Simulated assay, not measured.
Amino acid sequence: MTTDAEPDGFESWLRGRVPERGLRSKGASVLQVLLTQPRRVSYSSAAEAAELAGVNVATVSRTAQALGFSGWSDLQQELRARYLSSLSAPEVAAAQQTEGELGGASMRRDLESLALLTRRLDEQLLRTTAEAIAQSRRTVIVANGSYFSVGSALGHNVQLAGYEATVVHDDAELANAVSRIEPGDVLIAISFWRLYQSTVTAAQEAHDRGARVFALTDAASPALAAASEQILLIPAEGVAFFPSLVPGLAVAQAIAAQLSTVDPDRTRRSIEAAETQWSRFRLLHRQPRRD
Rank of each mutant, 00 (worst) to 15 (best):
V30W: 00
R24V: 11
D4S: 10
A172S: 12
Q258S: 11
E6Q: 10
L224V: 06
G16V: 04
V150P: 00
Q277T: 14
L87Y: 02
Q32Y: 10
A203P: 00
A28T: 13
L249Q: 11
A50L: 05
E272F: 10
Q77E: 11
E164R: 15
A50C: 07
S279V: 08
H207T: 03
S42C: 08
D218F: 00
V57D: 07
A256P: 09
L23R: 10
R40E: 14
T2W: 09
F148C: 02
L233E: 07
G16E: 07
L79R: 03
V186S: 02
H285M: 09
S29R: 15
T36S: 14
S270A: 15
A206T: 03
S85G: 10
V60N: 00
S29E: 15
Q32V: 07
A94D: 15
A46F: 03
A227E: 05
S228D: 06
A95Y: 02
V30I: 15
V246F: 12
V178C: 07
A236L: 08
R40N: 07
T261G: 06
T217H: 05
V239Q: 08
E78D: 07
S44N: 12
P288T: 05
L79T: 01
R17F: 03
Q76N: 05
Q287P: 04
A219D: 08
L126C: 03
V251H: 03
R109D: 00
T199P: 03
R39Q: 14
D122E: 09
F214E: 02
S88E: 10
Q159K: 13
A215K: 00
Q135M: 11
N157E: 14
G54P: 06
A28S: 15
L114I: 12
G71F: 04
W13S: 01
A236W: 01
L249K: 00
S228Y: 03
Q65G: 03
I188A: 01
T59W: 06
L23E: 05
A227H: 01
I234L: 11
A47L: 14
N144S: 08
S70P: 00
G151E: 01
P243E: 04
I271H: 02
L187H: 03
G145E: 04
A161S: 15
Q37H: 12
A95W: 00
S88I: 05
R127V: 13
Q96E: 12
Q124L: 11
F241Q: 13
G54T: 04
V33I: 15
A115Y: 05
A223Y: 06
Q197E: 14
S228E: 06
V178Y: 02
A240Y: 15
G103K: 04
T59K: 01
G68R: 04
S70H: 12
V60Q: 04
G22K: 11
Q204N: 05
S136N: 09
L249M: 14
S191I: 00
I181S: 01
E123Y: 02
R282M: 07
A211W: 02
Q258V: 09
R289K: 14
A177M: 11
G238D: 06
R180K: 09
R109F: 04
G151L: 02
L216C: 00
L249T: 00
R17E: 04
L31F: 08
R15W: 08
S136R: 09
V33F: 06
A130E: 02
R21M: 11
V140L: 15
E101H: 11
I190T: 01
A66S: 12
T276M: 08
A252W: 04
T36R: 13
S228L: 08
G145N: 00
N157L: 13
A274N: 10
